[in-house]
Simulated scan of single mutants.
Amino acid sequence: MLYPMMMNLKGKSAAVIGGGGIAERKAAGLLEAGAAVTIISPRVTAGLGKLISEEECIWKEKCFENDDAAGFFIIIAATDNPMVNREVKQAASDNQLVLMIDDPYLSDFQVPAMVRRGKLTLTVSTDGASPKLAKKIKKQLSQTYDERYENYLEFLQQSRRFILENVRDPAWKNRLLEQMISEEFLHETDRKAAFQKLYESYLKESKQCD
């Protein structure tokens, strides 16, 4: 069984072995997470070529050799040749994390199906049993947790910070934080005004209790 986690890759070195469509998607995801990406492949897609020309990542225009694995924190073997992908895994040391796109069971980690809504990240994994099922569930989640959640999470972050800084009573803190995640606030068109009204009711009640 795999251990689920969210990893901070900012500034971490990552190698993507391969230059096809899957390699392009994996490289884009690593770059989005802030990793320093190196592509190792004799050829690359137009999309990868654009990233390389814009100096978003480094390109080693060559076939993979064992020495190429040295020094990277994460390695993704994304070629269309299973033998090469296995060579990548064998060349890596024990303290490197390797993902083989064609063999999840020999990989050190897996990248789950993912839905992002700003600060909200929802992931689905079947531990390699059925990627199609993971894709199906991802679609369902994307419909349930739609684009509204992007602004909603920003609102929740700001409101939580304000409550923690300005509300001393633990019971009221919990009450206000619970109210923030209600359906009422999710659908509210003017959340700031609704929150201000709620906070004013807290001030009024807290004064009455003094």
Rank of each mutant, 00 (worst) to 15 (best):
S41Y: 05
A46E: 15
F185I: 09
L31F: 06
I58K: 13
M5F: 12
A92G: 04
R161P: 00
I74Q: 02
V124T: 10
R148V: 09
I74H: 03
P112Q: 05
R161Y: 05
D68Y: 01
K207T: 03
R116S: 14
A171E: 15
L30K: 01
F109S: 07
D94Q: 13
K132D: 09
K89E: 02
L51S: 07
G19V: 06
L48T: 03
K62P: 02
K10Q: 12
M6S: 14
E150K: 13
I52A: 02
L177A: 02
K204G: 00
K207Y: 02
E32N: 11
K138T: 04
K139S: 15
R116E: 15
R117Y: 10
K26M: 01
T144S: 11
V16E: 01
L97H: 11
I181A: 02
S53R: 14
R86C: 03
Q196P: 00
A33Y: 04
Q196T: 12
S201V: 06
R116V: 10
K89N: 08
A193H: 13
K60A: 08
A129C: 10
G18L: 03
G11D: 10
A15F: 04
A91H: 04
Y145C: 06
P82R: 06
A46Q: 13
V16Q: 00
A171Q: 15
K10R: 14
F72P: 00
V16P: 00
P170K: 14
K136V: 12
V37W: 00
E147L: 11
G71S: 03
M114Y: 02
T121Q: 12
D80S: 12
P112K: 10
E56P: 00
G20Q: 07
E154V: 08
S206I: 14
A134L: 05
N85F: 05
I40V: 09
K60M: 05
V111G: 06
M114R: 11
Q208K: 15
A35M: 10
P131T: 08
G21F: 00
Q158F: 05
K197E: 15
I163T: 02
N151T: 05
A23C: 09
